[in-house]
Amino acid sequence: MFRKVKIEDAVGLKLAHDITEVNLDKNFKGVAYKRGYKIKNEDIEHFKSLGKYFVYVMDEETLESVVHEDDAAKMLAPLIAGENIDYDKPSEGKVNFYAKINGLLKVDKEKIIAINRLQIPSLPTKHSNIPVKEGEVVAAFRIIPLYCDNSIIEKVKEILVIPSLDVIPFKFKKAGVIVTGNEVYYGKITDKFLPKISSKLKKFDVEVIKSDILPDEKDVIVNKIKEYIKDVDILFITGGTSVDPDDNTKLAIREAGIDIIQEGNPIQPGNNFTIGYYNDIPVCAVPAAALFYKATALDIFLPRLIAGDKISVDEIAEYSIGGLCHFCKVCVFPVCPFGKA
């Protein structure tokens, strides 16, 4: 694609890449000769002083048929970046992509994989469906060689008819928490669910505007659910989610008119975390596992729920891969493989 020649034989030819100069006497470090510069006879000694006795050059015909790494990044970055994604100028052929807001990262896996299968482009990303903060790097792009054929760029453009990266804003702000259980209602034990869930929601700027502690009475729970869904964006109901005879939470959720998409999920811990919807309002049954573990199914699904990202039965099944916690002695969630479907 380009050829190596002695600097004396390069006069009249164009450089295939930038030449960097470091001059401590002049306190200078930068580009001495830019890519495409036509080498002159009087440049030979300067090139040698930079240690360049050989350079890489290209003829005009070759230059027209290939794309430099910086140009590739400039052309493709706008096609990669979607909603609420920003990117910087190429540096040594690489461009970084940033979240413009706090939100949920969405990655089109099929597009990303298709681009990387071309072997010449490199487009690594962070996992889809994870929360990201404003200014956080979420992906990077470059072509691996210094140059690539124009045909590679055209193939990437065909894949990127729709951008492959987006950040969805967290849309829900008002939450309700209904704590159920005779042992809590009658004061036998102190409720720990409300502070736990409130703390998790606070990280997403979601406020618990309504909360109640109820006995294990199905009709009472049903009526309270119907009351809450008039005022909140998202509702959490704790306790009574397993298979004991007096566990009425999921029964009450159904009788309140909530469409449960699936009872439970394959993630451990938190198998009994159950998601339902009343129109677009998520209604979730939270099991006791959320009290005992730092990260459970609740934490895996929570960013998506708060972003209003509807979750399907098929997606729940996909969480089985990576859905088993490593139960590390020191938990570093969310910077770990747990829940990265």
Rank of each mutant, 00 (worst) to 15 (best):
E136K: 12
I120F: 07
F170L: 13
F141M: 09
Y186H: 15
I144N: 10
I159D: 03
L104Q: 04
Y186Q: 08
E154T: 10
L194C: 08
P163G: 01
K188D: 11
K111V: 03
L165D: 08
K171Y: 08
E207I: 14
K157P: 06
V138G: 01
L104A: 08
I113E: 15
F172H: 09
K94Q: 08
A140H: 02
L123R: 02
E207L: 15
V208F: 00
D108C: 05
E134P: 02
G176M: 05
L118N: 01
K157G: 10
S122K: 12
K174G: 09
E158C: 03
S199N: 11
I130F: 09
L201Y: 11
I189C: 07
Y186A: 04
K202R: 12
I178Q: 03
S151N: 15
Q119W: 11
E134V: 09
V95S: 07
K203M: 13
K155Y: 03
T180I: 14
I144Y: 06
T125Q: 01
T125C: 06
T190N: 14
K133W: 02
E154Y: 02
K188P: 00
I130W: 08
S151K: 13
V132M: 01
K196R: 15
G176P: 08
F204Y: 15
K155S: 09
R142P: 00
S164H: 02
E154V: 03
G176R: 04
Y147R: 04
L123E: 12
K196E: 15
V177T: 08
K174N: 15
N182H: 09
G187L: 10
I159T: 06
K173Y: 14
E154A: 10
F172E: 04
I120T: 10
L194I: 09
V138K: 03
P124R: 13
K173T: 11
K173G: 09
E136C: 07
S128A: 13
K173E: 14
V184L: 15
E134L: 11
I153M: 07
S164W: 02
E134K: 15
S199W: 06
E158M: 11
